[in-house]
Amino acid sequence: MSSEIIDLDILNELKEIMEDDFDELIETFIDDGQKQVDDLRVAIDASIAPDIRRIAHTLKGSSANLGANALSETCKVLEHDAAEDNLSDANNQYEKIKNAYEAVKASLAENF
């Protein structure tokens, strides 16, 4: 059910490899992810396309690494738009990203 939110196979493999470091990874992702979502809000309010692009890019990468595919996909759309200086749908994309992030966070809390 949660495979769209997060790929548990990837996470389980990471947990196996990283052992004690895995908790740090989850914590880092949740803390950095929250900060990136917040920074995104600020950048969108200020309409600074390069910042939006950079933040979305980073969040896209880290979420993909953890198997958070839905979050990564929505970030990719926003990054692409920002790269073309198209911010018309930015607020809408932001909501999607924020929701996807919350879902990942909840899923992580539930499973690990």
């Binding site: 990283m18 470091d21 990874l25 992702f29 950095d32 880290s62």
Partner: peptide, 10 residues
């Protein structure tokens, strides 16, 4: 990105 460093490093 710290997550990337951790995953790749692992």
């Amino acid at each position: 990105d710290a997550t990337n460093r951790l995953v790749l490093g692992a």
